[in-house]
Design a protein around this nucleic acid. Structure first.
Lengths: 155, 155
DNA sequence: TATTGTTATACTCTATAACTATA
DNA sequence: TATAGTTATAGAGTATAACAATA
């Protein structure tokens, strides 16, 4: 009697996750991972990664914002913000203007071409958001509330 | 009249996140990020990172599991599983045994010392889980349901 | 002295592709 | 030919620390 495909390890078809299956952190990672990949393969294919997109959105919504505040908004260190800003600037998507009040500060704003890219991207981003919204369905408000709390309150 | 601290950019104290504030993906990333850091600085300080811990948990719950199936369980490529397994093995936390049925397959199982580490770690992990559970409160079932759906259904 | 942003650097996590050995 | 696991390698993404300019 020959050992056949799949027969070898007895009863291992379904992986038992144990307590992991009840751990919010574990599912948080899987969901974030899946969502990130899905975003990257739709909007990301169109030349703007999630991080860059988020930064651009913050800038368009907060013209004149500095890199420190931007970093806080997207929860990144200022040293992580620098390369993002450089990319956006090199592509002509944003402007940098030294503040007249404080010459250490650089005021960020979106350019016409940045707006154009955003417009071009919005449908894809919307599609991604809608996918998530559809999946979350009526759970969305509760989901967002829980996620916000986790991000803000955990220590 | 001298320009004083914080006065320069008019009205920028609070960052306006715009549509980002309504995007599940954005909050997913922030929550996952915060949760990961919190875990790393409690249980992680005790020598096992989230990824390694998750792998060890899957192994303890599925003795004899192979690296492919393990990777599927934690949503990682087999090439990402290899270094995790090596670390766990080098620390004597798991055993690898070639399957008698299929000598390509390596059956993973936890060692006594792996169990001991797990026991030692459980309080910290529990504390982290409890923190998340407390924050999620009554929202937890809905949160988990939404996270599972996102991980499984998004494309 | 403190703060804004940059640079240099390094670390973690991950995947792709090519490989070995088995099947 | 196909599959389990390894290796080599590369690329994102991020942070820490030291720095320059300015406050």
């Amino acid at each position: 009697m020959v050992a056949r495909k799949r027969v070898s390890p007895p009863g291992l078809r379904v992986v038992n996750l144990g307590t992991l299956d009840d751990a919010i952190g574990f599912h948080l990672r899987r969901a974030q991972d899946a969502s990130f990949r899905a975003f990257a393969s739709s909007a990301g294919r169109h030349d703007l990664k999630p991080g860059h997109f988020a930064a651009l959105l913050v800038i368009v919504n907060n013209p004149g914002i500095g890199q420190g505040a931007l970093g806080q908004a997207i929860s990144r260190d200022k040293s992580s913000v620098t390369p993002i800003i450089q990319t956006l600037f090199n592509r002509g998507l944003i402007d940098r203007q030294t503040s007249a009040f404080d010459r250490r500060r650089i005021q960020l704003s979106i350019t016409t071409s940045g707006r154009a890219l955003l417009r071009r991207l919005v449908p894809h981003v919307r599609a991604h958001d809608r996918k998530l919204d559809t999946i979350a369905g009526a759970d969305k408000p509760v989901l967002l509330r829980a996620l916000r709390r986790i991000a803000n309150e955990i220590s």
